[in-house]
């Protein structure tokens, strides 16, 4: 059966690509520290020597729209074009083409449906920065086949937080039951406190540093009990109006397992939002 060699949860900051590639006067003062942290984070994936990446993210009203909105969707295609005109325009993100791992997509869909998740699917999915940002930060060669999984953290009504956790737990079991010798990393991105298009956006820190601190502790310690006690669909409005993206972190806590401490934890306090990076090694940390 396949093995999960790394579980990775991260914020997806669309400004990283531009900040890290800027030079001279265009290079922001925080770019060097940010790049150092990303290179260290990248090493946690590289060391795990994955063959396949399961990528959990959320479409930002690119391909998925209010006339036909799935809650959880699995891509099943041989290729995925990536990044959109408005992401080039605002963030300077490059167009990309990623290979798909259709066999694993099909396995996740079949087993997920049988496990009680009525997963939507797409055979032609253009993915966005929720998935390409971690490709850029963690695997910039973009050479590994992927299975994209989209969650709806964006267009209410949303699934409950516990449903994200349950899906994460099922994804772990399903990937581990995939009849394959391949090494799989499960990577998901979300947000800590975040405000977009509201009065608290683009402040000197994330809109709710206290929430961020608690959230990082929940994730780092795998404290799903406390996290599920504290976090509701209503409560997530308080830290910032886009904080429902935190539920993708909760999904990844489900993949990692309740009570399992992360093997790698790092954060970076930036303007607008706090960056956070976590890696778990379900089979023990790889030797160098």
């Amino acid at each position: 059966m396949a093995s999960i060699v790394a579980v990775i949860a991260s914020t997806h900051h669309p400004f990283y690509y531009r900040a890290s590639t800027a030079t001279g006067e265009d290079r922001p003062p925080f770019a060097d520290e940010w790049t150092r942290k990303i290179l260290a984070f990248r090493e946690t994936l590289t060391r795990a020597r994955p063959d396949v990446l399961v990528m959990v993210g959320s479409d930002h009203f690119h391909q998925l729209w209010l006339d036909n909105m799935p809650q959880f969707l699995v891509g099943k295609a041989p290729y995925y074009d990536a990044n959109w005109y408005n992401e080039e325009r605002e963030f300077g993100l490059p167009r990309m083409l990623l290979r798909g791992q259709e066999d694993l997509s099909g396995h996740i869909l079949r087993a997920g449906l049988d496990a009680g998740f009525d997963l939507a699917f797409s055979n032609e999915l253009r993915i966005d920065h929720s998935i390409t940002c971690p490709i850029i930060t963690l695997r910039p060669e973009a050479d590994l086949p992927i299975v994209p999984i989209y969650t709806n953290i964006f267009a209410p009504p949303l699934p409950q937080p516990k449903r994200f956790v349950q899906l994460g737990q099922s994804i772990r079991d399903i990937v581990q039951s995939w009849p394959s010798h391949l090494r799989v990393a499960v990577i998901g991105t979300g947000h800590l406190s975040l405000e977009l298009g509201g009065p608290r956006q683009f402040g000197p820190h994330g809109p709710d540093p206290e929430f961020d601190q608690r959230a990082v502790e929940w994730i780092a310690n795998g404290d799903l009990d406390e996290c599920l006690r504290e976090v509701t669909l209503d409560s997530l409005h308080s830290p910032g109006n886009a904080t429902h993206g935190f539920m993708d972190f909760m999904l990844m806590m489900g993949v990692a397992g309740a009570g399992v401490k992360a093997d790698y934890v790092d954060t970076l306090d930036l303007f607008h939002t706090m960056e956070a990076y976590f890696t778990w090694y379900p089979n023990g940390a790889p030797t160098a």
Partner: peptide, 25 residues
Amino acid sequence: HPFLTLTLFIALFERDNTEPLEYQK
């Protein structure tokens, strides 16, 4: 939806910035 409004309005008006993030702030 605040994300849709923000994204479009940045496209409309960020180009007039005289300093970084001026319009967003």
